[in-house]
């Protein structure tokens, strides 16, 4: 796979063709129900993902596998159009519903992420929305309530996975980021569940 970042930033990056990936997938297939591409950001390689998923769907041995994309949602509608007929569904990270805070947290705007969630939901291709929660940044009750309302308006039975931030593998930051406690994580779940009958999982 050609990764969309300079190689020096990703020392493990390698160039691979679709055929190179089909082989390990074939070996692991008896133990799998599906294939999920993640990243980095897999949608930055959308033509490759399309080719890979297309090859899986066309292979009689592999066609039973589902094809999922794990994405931050920062992709255009054209990207979802491109993947639409070969992708079963996507899991989308929503870092923050509030645009201003999203910029301060990630350095970019969340307009495309919100639109991706709406688009995929409308097409029946949204598997779940994942909320990554960092204490002190996006964990206040008000924001969680607002987020739950927005998601429930789209689909009251939506699958929502609440993921507590983990320090493992994170670069140092000016303001140190903290992992939420088990009690805090449980509280996030309670807030979201109190708004609507969403299918909430807390990890």
């Amino acid at each position: 796979m050609h990764l969309g970042m300079p190689v020096r930033l990703l020392p493990k990056a390698r160039h691979l063709a679709v055929a190179d990936l089909l082989e390990p997938i074939r070996v692991a297939a008896p133990f799998l129900s599906g294939v999920t591409v993640s990243g980095g950001e897999a949608t930055m390689q959308a033509p490759f993902v399309r080719a890979l998923f297309g090859a899986i769907k066309a292979d009689p041995e592999l066609a039973r596998l589902t094809c999922f994309v794990d994405t931050n949602g920062d992709a255009s509608t054209a990207t979802w159009d491109l993947l639409g007929d070969v992708m079963d569904a996507a899991m989308v990270d929503l870092k923050c519903l509030d645009p201003a805070r999203h910029v301060s947290l990630t350095g970019s705007d969340n307009t495309r992420t919100l639109r991706s969630i709406e688009t995929l939901q409308g097409r029946g291709q949204l598997y779940e929305v994942r909320l990554l929660i960092v204490p002190g940044f996006n964990d206040d009750d008000e924001l969680l309530t607002e987020t739950a309302r927005w998601l429930a308006d789209l689909d009251p039975g939506m699958r929502v996975r609440i993921i507590g931030f983990r320090r493992h593998g994170i670069r140092p930051t000016a303001v140190p980021l903290r992992e939420p406690s088990a009690a805090e994580r449980a509280h996030y779940g309670d807030i979201v569940r109190s708004i609507a009958d969403l299918q909430v999982t807390v990890v």
Binding site: P30, F31, L32, S33, T201, V203
Partner: peptide, 17 residues
């Protein structure tokens, strides 16, 4: 623990091989 379905796939895969 977060993905019990994956263990189901592995068990069925193990029997299939």
């Amino acid at each position: 623990v977060r993905n019990p379905q994956a263990m189901v796939d592995i068990i069925k895969g193990a029997f299939a091989v």
